[in-house]
Write a protein that binds this DNA or RNA. Structure first.
Length: 556
RNA sequence: UGGGGCAUGGUGCAACGGCAGCACACCGGACUUUGAAUCCGUGGAUCUAGGUUCGAAUCCUGGUGCCCCAGCCA
C-alpha cells in the first residue's frame, strides 16, 4: 500500500479501526455542470477516486445540478471526458442530484410535518435583512409560526406552480440567533420557473445545494464526503438535516483547494475570460482547464504526479506553477520522440556543398538512449534553416553558437563555419554563408577537435511548413487575483501569452497528429492542435519549453 | 467587538513527546552531438510569548497573522 499519507487517510484509518463504516469506503465526485473542469477540480477528483482506490472502495460521479439556470448538458459531457482522460472511472454509478428531486421533496414534507420547516413569504431582500449580521443575531420571520397544515398546503402549491419566482421559499426552522450563519433558518427550496437540463419542466421549485448535497450523499451510501474548506461551516447544517430526517450519516472531510500561481482558478473568472474573448474558449491552451491542458499536450500522468507531489492538507496555499511544469517536462522527456524544427528560420547557405545534392542522415528517435532502435532518415542539402538565435553577428561572451569565423556542429550532420552574412534593405540578416567540413560527416571529426556548439537545422528544400503557437503564462502577475484597488484580473492578461510563428519542420513531422508529443530538440515539447491542425496545414502547440539555462544566464 | 478553520526553508507537503525530512525552485560542479536530460554537491524553516516535560514543530495558556461565513449560487 502507498506509504504516502495525509490527514484524510489518517481519519479513514481511524474509522476502519473503530468499525464506523464497517470497513467500507465509498466516495463521490460532485461537480456542478456549469463549466469546464480545471486543475483544481483535478485535485478534488484525484482525492475522491484515489482514496476509494486505496481502500478498494468505489467512487460515484454525481452532478450537483440543483440550479437549472446555470447548468447545461454541454458541461456534463465535457466533465466525463476529462475524468476519463485523467484515468478514473465511475463504472455505472453516474448520478444526478436531480435524480433525487422527488425524494428530496418528500424529505421537505417530512420536515414540515415535524414542525421543522416553513413556507416564508419574505422577499430575498427581507430575508437578508432578517438574517442579522456576523455579530448580531437575526430575527424570526413573521411567517415562521404558520401551522403545519398551512405550510403543507402552501408548499404543495409552490410545487404546483401557483406562485411567481421569488415570492416564497421553504425554510428550515433552526435558530435565527445561531453564530453559524448557515443555521439561521436556511432556505431549502426556491421557486424557479426554469427548464432543467434533465427534468425539463417537471419542476418549478428546486432544492438549494445545502438541502440536496448531504442527503444525496446519504442516499448513495457515501461514507466519506470530501470537499473544500469553505464547506466546513455547512457541515453542521448537513448533519442537522440528516439527524432530523433520521438518515445515514456520511463523514464530510474538508481540505484546502488547489491554488496555482500565474492563473485564476474560479469558474466564474474563467467564464469571464471566455466571454470577454480574452482567450479563444474554455479549451484555449492557456486556460487552466483540463480540456485546455489536454489540447496543449499535457500528459494526464503529469497532472497526477503533480497532484501527488502537492499533497493534501487544510492549509490555504499557493503552489508554484513551475512545479506543474516540472512534472509535464518529466513525463514528456521520457515519451517524446526527438525531431528538428526551426521556429524562427534563418537561411544558411553552405557555399562549398554541391548544388542539387541531397544526402540523408539516419537519426535515432531518442539519441540519448543507445538502446533506442527506432530511427528515421533526415534529408540534408546546400541550403538550410537554423534558428535566428543560433547566429550572432557580434557574439556576446560565453555564446558558443554560430558566428563569423566560428565553427559549430549541425546536429547529426557536419561541422560548419560561418564566413559572411547577407542583409536585406532593412539591415536584417537574410542569410548566413558557411563552409562545411566534409570530413565531419555525422557530426564528428577524425582529428578529434572539439566543437563547443551544436545547433539544429532543417533542410530548406525539404522543410515542411507549420504554424507553431508559443504560450506564456496567462498572467505575468504571480497572484492575478490579488491586485491593487480598482484593477481587475481581466486587465492583467499577459499580452504575450500567445505568439504565433511560421516554422520549418523536418519532413518526418508532416503527418503528425494530436495524440503524440514531440520534442523539438533544444526547444521544447510540441503537440499538434486537436482543433486546428490538419495534414497539409499543420498547427503545433508548444506544450512547454525546455529548461533554458542560457536564457536564464542572459537574464541575470 | 459572532462562529468556523489554518500557521514548518522561497513554494508545497512530512515528522503524531525523542537527531526537523522529501519534492520543486535557487546556487555550485561533472558529463554532454539538445546550454535539455542525467549525476554529484552547498546553503536555507518550526508565527510569537509563557507553561508542562529529562526532552516540545508536536501537549497547555495568552497573543499575532491569514482564510471562510451575512446568495432564493455551488
Amino acid at each position: 500500500m502507498d506509504e504516502k499519507t495525509n490527514f484524510i487517510i489518517e481519519i479513514i484509518d481511524e474509522h476502519n479501526r473503530s468499525g464506523r463504516f464497517g470497513g467500507r469506503v465509498h466516495t463521490r465526485f460532485p461537480p456542478e455542470p456549469n463549466g469546464y473542469l480545471h486543475i483544481g477540480h483535478a485535485k478534488a477528483l484525484t482525492i475522491d477516486f484515489g482514496i476509494a482506490e486505496r481502500y478498494g472502495g468505489l467512487t460515484n460521479l454525481r452532478y450537483d445540478d440543483t440550479n437549472p439556470v446555470k447548468e447545461d448538458t454541454e458541461y456534463v459531457d465535457a466533465i466525463k471526458e476529462d475524468i476519463h482522460w485523467l484515468g478514473f472511472d465511475w463504472g455505472d454509478r453516474e448520478f444526478y442530484a436531480s435524480d433525487y428531486f422527488e425524494q428530496l421533496y418528500e424529505m421537505a414534507l417530512q420536515l414540515i410535518r415535524q414542525g421543522q420547516a416553513y413556507v416564508d413569504d419574505l422577499s430575498a431582500d427581507e430575508i437578508r435583512a432578517y438574517r442579522g449580521t456576523l455579530t448580531e443575531a437575526g430575527k424570526n420571520s413573521p411567517w415562521r409560526e404558520r401551522s403545519i397544515e398551512e405550510n403543507l398546503d402552501l408548499f404543495a402549491r409552490m410545487r404546483a406552480g401557483e406562485f411567481p419566482d421569488g415570492s416564497r421559499t421553504l425554510r428550515a426552522k433552526i435558530d435565527m440567533s445561531a453564530p453559524n450563519m448557515n443555521m439561521r433558518d436556511p432556505v431549502m427550496y426556491r421557486i424557479l420557473h426554469a427548464s432543467h437540463h434533465r427534468t425539463g419542466d417537471a419542476w418549478c421549485i428546486y432544492p438549494m445545494y445545502d438541502f440536496a448535497h448531504g442527503q444525496s450523499d446519504s442516499l448513495e451510501g457515501i461514507t466519506h464526503s470530501m470537499c473544500s474548506l469553505e464547506y466546513e461551516n455547512h457541515r453542521p447544517l448537513y448533519d442537522w438535516f440528516l439527524d432530523q430526517l433520521g438518515l445515514f450519516h456520511p463523514q464530510q472531510i474538508e481540505f484546502a483547494r488547489l491554488n496555482l500561481t500565474h492563473t485564476v482558478m474560479s469558474k466564474r473568472k474563467l467564464r469571464r475570460l471566455v466571454e470577454e474573448k480574452l482567450v479563444s474558449g474554455w479549451t484555449d491552451p492557456r486556460m487552466p482547464t483540463l480540456a485546455a491542458m489536454r489540447r496543449r499536450g499535457y500528459p494526464p500522468e503529469a497532472i497526477r504526479s503533480f497532484l501527488e507531489a502537492v499533497g493534501v492538507a487544510k492549509n490555504d496555499s499557493f503552489v508554484d506553477v513551475e512545479l506543474l511544469e516540472h512534472f509535464v517536462r518529466d513525463a514528456l522527456n521520457a515519451q517524446s520522440k526527438r525531431r528538428m524544427a526551426v521556429l524562427q528560420p534563418l537561411k544558411v547557405i553552405l557555399d562549398n556543398y554541391p548544388e542539387g545534392k541531397t544526402e540523408f542522415f539516419t537519426v535515432s528517435d531518442f539519441p540519448q538512449d543507445p538502446e533506442c532502435k527506432t530511427k528515421r532518415q533526415v534529408p540534408f542539402c546546400r541550403e538550410l534553416y537554423i534558428e535566428r538565435v543560433d547566429f550572432m553577428e557580434n557574439p556576446v561572451p560565453k555564446y558558443f553558437r554560430l558566428a563569423i569565423g566560428r565553427e559549430v556542429r549541425l546536429m547529426n550532420a557536419y561541422y560548419i563555419t560561418a564566413t559572411s552574412v547577407e542583409k536585406d534593405e532593412l539591415g536584417k540578416i537574410a542569410a548566413v554563408h558557411c563552409t562545411y567540413d566534409p570530413e565531419s560527416r555525422g557530426g564528428m571529426s577524425a582529428d578529434g577537435r572539439k566543437v563547443k556548439g551544436t545547433i539544429h537545422w532543417v533542410s530548406a528544400a525539404h522543410a515542411v511548413d507549420a504554424e507553431v503557437r508559443l504560450y506564456e503564462q496567462l498572467f505575468e502577475d504571480k497572484f492575478p487575483e490579488d491586485l491593487p484597488e480598482g484593477e481587475t484580473f481581466l486587465d492583467h492578461v499577459n499580452k504575450n501569452s500567445l505568439t504565433v510563428c511560421q516554422a520549418k519542420l523536418e519532413p518526418d513531422l508532416a503527418d503528425a497528429q494530436a495524440g503524440e508529443s514531440w520534442q523539438f530538440v533544444r526547444s521544447g515539447y510540441f503537440y499538434p492542435d486537436s482543433e486546428d491542425s490538419k495534414p497539409g496545414k499543420l498547427v503545433f502547440n508548444r506544450t512547454i519549453s525546455l529548461v533554458d539555462s542560457w536564457a536564464k544566464m542572459q537574464a541575470s
